[in-house]
């Protein structure tokens, strides 16, 4: 067999695509033929070179592709982790909010229950003291007036201050006594 005839076999030998018997024949020939050894070395170098012809992956390659895939509805959209977490956090958050409201309201309820009831003696107030609540919250209606009727002047001042502390928004509100009722915080009403 002439060297020219070995060429294609050497090509297959480099690629591992000839039988073991043929491979032994090629190896035996290469041991005795310098020209074919050079050819084999050059053929391998060509393969190495082609394998090293590479280009960088563009940094936005994945993002661009996945955007196109999602636009064509070829890829299920991944759930937002924030939405997922928020959904699972909703129950404990609701419980925590309820507990907070309860703790916040309970002392006031207790104070409400323990507040002095209107009596003949406690209803005896001076005109100046009687006008105090209406000055603090002009335009307030009967519920506040009724609740405040049994309070002393000092107690009314305290109540007036509490009112502001409980519902700062009430400072700017006009004409709606329900929204500024001191013993019914707005949080409780919304719940």
């Amino acid at each position: 067999m002439k060297c020219l005839d070995w060429k294609e076999k050497i090509s297959g030998y480099i690629d591992g695509e000839i039988s073991s018997e043929e491979a032994r024949q090629v190896e035996a020939h290469l041991e005795t033929c310098g020209e074919c050894r050079t050819l084999e070395r050059r053929m391998r170098a060509i393969g190495t070179g082609v394998a090293r012809v590479e280009t960088d992956v563009p940094p936005d390659f994945r993002e661009k592709l996945f955007t196109r895939l999602e636009a064509e509805e070829l890829l299920p959209r991944r759930r937002s982790l924030f939405v997922f977490s928020l959904r699972w956090a909703a129950v404990p958050l609701a419980v925590a909010a309820s507990v907070a409201v309860f703790l916040f309201v309970s002392p006031e309820k207790g104070k409400d229950a323990g507040a002095p009831q209107p009596t003949a003696t406690s209803s005896k107030v001076s005109p100046q003291a009687e006008s105090q609540p209406s000055n603090a919250a002009p335009g307030k209606g009967q519920p506040v007036a009724t609740a405040a009727a049994g309070l002393s002047v000092e107690e009314r001042e305290i109540v007036a201050n509490l009112e502001v502390l409980e519902d700062p928004a009430a400072i700017d509100e006009q004409g709606d006594p329900d929204t500024i009722e001191i013993f019914e915080p707005s949080v409780r009403r919304q719940g």
Partner: peptide, 15 residues
């Protein structure tokens, strides 16, 4: 697929 003598099996100093 059959195992091929890949590029890494070749001598990198050849080029």
């Amino acid at each position: 697929a059959p195992q091929l003598p890949g590029p890494s099996a070749l001598n990198p100093e050849e080029i």
